[in-house]
Design a protein around this nucleic acid. Structure first.
Length: 424
RNA sequence: GGAGAGGUGGCAGAGCGGUUGAAUGCACUGGUCUUGAAAACCAGCAUGGGUUUGUAGCCCAUCCAGGGUUCGAAUCCCUGCCUCUCCGCCA
């Protein structure tokens, strides 16, 4: 959620910046609702104040043994009046909240203009795509002989799931272990285990609700529980309704979880293989820092995700998402795109975003600034480090041999009992 | 799944329906004392919102959440959520 104060103070510049994201702010509606809210709220509080003082008088009169009947008559109509005003205030506040909750985060000034991914700006490249002396295959072809089975998954569940058996499943696990170890041992993240099912409060906190319900799997229980679409939700919500002390900053957490996405509205996109699944594994990095530190933290976190690709010796590029491609709550996003020889293209494998105070305001996630003694909103940053399924795809395609076998990257061999090559 | 108890400030823990935003203790912060520290003593110590030039003042809200009763609710009633104890089941 945006800072309402920001809109009150400088509505015009906020509206202008939101245009970069392709969002048209209804300024007139905001101004009108704000004006109504203000006068109504003053009215309600005034009535309540009257009621409080009158009630107090009644209490005192009763204690003194005086006749309270005339006093009761004086407040008789106050209650009804108050109730009516309160009701309209609640309705108005709901309207205002709906408006506010529907406004995306304001993009950082370094976010390039543009309407879709073709306008994203490449920041840098790392590694040279390998030159093959044979026709490289994609992971679906390669996997067919190595224990990757989409038809089996369709039998068990449906489309967009996968079954892996044998060394490929082990490689998948090895990637996860390697990422967790690297981030927790070298990059200073505290490893965390979290629930894979969350309530709607948590999803509202990180911004998946109310706008993106169709992307989620909702459980068929009386409670409003959902499967997590990313570890970002449970991990970031650790801070919801908390005020942490300065010595707990920076808050850095790494968690490995499965992620569940209904992928509604993406029918026909990336239907082949493991790129877009309803269930996939991800190692997620989350940071929460003071407002001064968030831009540095975004660069640091992006670097941590890049470190995994570098250790795996997978060529990639870093892209600065343009306004139109930027997520709802993000102020700036770096996408890491790994080279996939099977597609002859760079494909997203990590997305690192600075949310500023956008999520923290929804969550009331704060820290106490010792300089002022006051609680201040945290800034939240998160990113994949990395998407495990896509990393598996990248390893398979980049390390493939002419005979269809896969060389195990050096850094993963210790996780695989020293295995150097996966073959049928 | 069955039976019972309970959710109050950072923590512990009081609280006859009426100056209770909340006793007391601990923790924390500042001060006095001390060569320094401890102890002792004194003082301070929630959050959000409104009004305002104001981190001054004033006002409103908040004792798990949501409803209700009442002139007035932390206190009474209903619902939900959560926690604890015992039994059953289970990894």
């Amino acid at each position: 959620m945006l800072d309402p104060q920001l809109l009150r103070n400088d509505l015009d510049s906020a509206a202008e910046k939101l245009l970069i994201k392709g969002y048209q702010l209804d300024k007139k509606q905001f101004i009108e609702l704000e004006a109504q809210r203000k006068s109504l709220q003053v009215q309600v509080e005034d009535l309540r104040s009257q009621r409080n003082t009158e009630s107090k008088k009644i209490g005192q009169a009763k204690a003194a043994g005086e006749d309270i009947q005339p006093l009761l008559a004086a407040v008789a109509s106050l209650g009804d009046e108050l109730k009516a005003s309160e009701q309209s205030l609640v309705m108005l506040q709901e309207k205002l909240n709906d408006l506010l909750a529907g406004i995306p985060n304001i993009p950082h000034e370094s976010v390039p203009p543009g309407k879709d991914e073709s306008d994203n700006v490449e920041l840098r490249r790392w590694g040279d795509p390998r030159v093959f002396d044979f026709q490289p295959r994609d992971h679906v072809d390669l996997g067919a002989e190595l224990g990757m089975d989409f038809e089996m998954a369709a039998k068990l569940t449906g489309s967009r799931y996968v079954v892996m058996q044998g060394s490929l499943a082990t490689l998948h696990r090895a990637l996860t272990q390697f990422m967790l170890d690297t981030h927790s041992r070298q990059n200073g993240y505290t490893e965390s285990y979290v629930p894979y099912i969350v309530n709607s409060d948590s999803l509202r906190g990180t911004g998946q609700l109310p706008k993106f319900e169709e992307d989620l799997f909702k459980l068929n229980t009386e409670q409003d529980n959902y499967l997590i679409p990313t570890a970002e939700v449970p991990v970031t919500n650790i801070l919801r309704d908390e005020i942490i002390s300065a010595d707990q900053l920076p808050f850095k957490r790494v968690a490995h979880t499965p992620c569940f996405r209904s992928e509604a509205g993406s029918y026909g996109r990336d239907t082949r293989g493991m790129i877009r699944q309803h269930q996939f594994e991800k190692v997620e990095l989350v940071q929460a820092v003071s407002s001064e530190d968030s831009w540095r933290a975004l660069d640091e976190l992006t670097g941590h995700a890049e470190g995994i690709l570098q250790a795996l010796e997978l060529p990639y590029r870093v892209v600065n998402l343009c306004g139109g491609d930027l997520g709802f709550g993000s102020a700036k996003t770096h996408d890491l795109e790994v080279w996939l020889p099977g597609q002859q293209a760079y494909r997203e494998i990590s997305s690192c975003s600075n949310f500023g105070s956008f999520q923290a305001r929804r969550m009331q996630a704060r820290w106490r600034n010792p300089e002022t003694g006051k609680p201040e909103l945290l800034h939240t940053i998160n990113g994949s480090g990395l998407a495990v399924g896509r990393a598996l795809v990248a390893v398979m395609e980049n390390y493939q041999q002419q005979d269809g076998s896969i060389v195990v990257p050096q850094v993963l061999r210790s996780y695989m009992g020293g295995l150097e090559k996966i073959s049928a």
